[in-house]
Simulated assay, not measured.
Amino acid sequence: MTLSTQLLRRGIEAAHDVHGLLSAKEGGHGQPGDDEPPQVPALAALVFFVTGMLIIALLFCIGYTFGHLLPTLCMIESPETAAYVPVDVLEPTDPPAYAATTPKPTQDDGEDDAEVLLVRNKPLTASIRQTILHLRARAGYWSPYRGLSMFLIWNVATGLLVGIIASIFHSRLGVAFAAIVAETALATLHMTWVHIVISEASPKRWYQRIASFKTWPKIAPAVALWATSNQIVHILPMLVCGSFGSLKHMNNPEYEPGRKDLYAVGAQGVMAMFLTVLLFVLLQIPASVTLVRVAASMLPEEDETIVPFDRTFGGKTTPAIIGGQGKIGLVEAWRSFPWASRIRLVKLMIKVALIVMAFWLTFTIVLVAEAHVIFGDKLGEMMKTVHGISRPH
């Protein structure tokens, strides 16, 4: 779960609350079956539906690459060490492709060495464009969507399991508990997705790379921590903001909101977004980094990572092939993630959130404009019909 996903979900919920207030203020729409639905040409409805589906597909692709894949690579990349490189082997560039220079070193016998530069390689994941180009150079044109099959299988299986467990409960907290249990139970699928994303292209199919169930006890605590933080970030802001003010009375059929209540809902929505961002930074990022790095520590020895990665985590763990435990602990997984990398990850997520929100705004404008052109004077009636169908009875 990424920051952009959380903000989009929070924005949709806030918009729905405002719309509910406006509907209540207008006195309701009556039952959906009271009036005949407006008649629109089938071709126009089909064009609008296809456009909506294309927008959803594009947002999913953008969210997958920028919101899931790139942050995962950033969480495991270990910046390469600085190196002294002879000047005559570097091609001139503008700006120069180096971070710092060093004076020409001299030997004790008085002879001068060739002029050299101290090159500090910039991490790949510091630039979104550079990361995409690197992936395509190493794993092909479609590499920004690598691991998509495993991602879909993992999420569909999780969704089915959540549905089964959640049928026992009838509350939001019950569904959250079901999600935590389901994610933890399918921890090996989550770990397999991480392995596919961070490793070089492999001839194996996705199902051939699913980790053995014997690895479940090693990865389950990290997934449980991640799933719990995910639910806290999603639920806690709405529980807090929905416990007072106008949102507290939204389900009361006798509640008659006024203009000031609309402003109150807007303010509570902003507060919910602020809490979401705060909890995301304080809980979700550390939990996500911990999960990814613990999973990366169990990457099979025959697989090479597609970005620079220190398997020993600075000497804090020993690979299983030489008698070590073969994984890093939860605390060390986070501590071994240096502050420079943490800042780089936060910057990346801010960029991703802005990109997703910009695309979301653009697609919304396109969809609204198309709705006006296609439905014309019947747009209001269509919105009433859709609202009546979607309202709970």
Rank of each mutant, 00 (worst) to 15 (best):
Phe169Tyr: 15
Ser143Gly: 11
Phe151Asn: 09
Ser167Ala: 12
Ala157Trp: 08
Arg146Ile: 01
Leu161Glu: 09
Asn155Arg: 13
Leu148Tyr: 09
Val156His: 07
Trp142Asn: 09
Arg136Ala: 00
Arg138Ile: 03
Leu152Gln: 04
Ala166Thr: 05
Phe169Ala: 14
Ser143Thr: 02
Val162Leu: 08
Leu148Phe: 09
Ile168Thr: 12
Ile153Val: 14
Leu173Gln: 08
Trp154Arg: 10
Trp142Tyr: 10
Leu173Pro: 01
Phe169Arg: 07
Leu173Ile: 10
Phe151Lys: 02
Ala157Phe: 12
Gly147Ser: 00
Val156Glu: 06
Ile168Trp: 11
Gly147Ala: 01
Leu160Glu: 12
Ile168Arg: 13
Ser171Asn: 09
Leu160Phe: 15
Arg172Phe: 07
Ala139Glu: 15
Ser167His: 10
Tyr141Val: 10
Gly159Met: 15
Trp154Cys: 06
Val162Pro: 02
Ala166Cys: 02
Gly159His: 14
Gly140Gln: 01
Thr158Glu: 11
Leu161Arg: 05
Met150Phe: 03
Ser171Ala: 02
Arg138Met: 11
Gly174Thr: 06
Ala166Ser: 11
Leu148Val: 11
Phe169Asn: 13
Gly147Thr: 03
Gly147Arg: 00
Leu160Pro: 02
Leu161Ala: 11
Ile165Glu: 06
His170Leu: 12
Thr158Ser: 14
Tyr141Arg: 12
His170Ser: 15
Gly163Cys: 07
Gly147Phe: 03
Arg136Gly: 01
Tyr145Leu: 13
Phe151Ser: 10
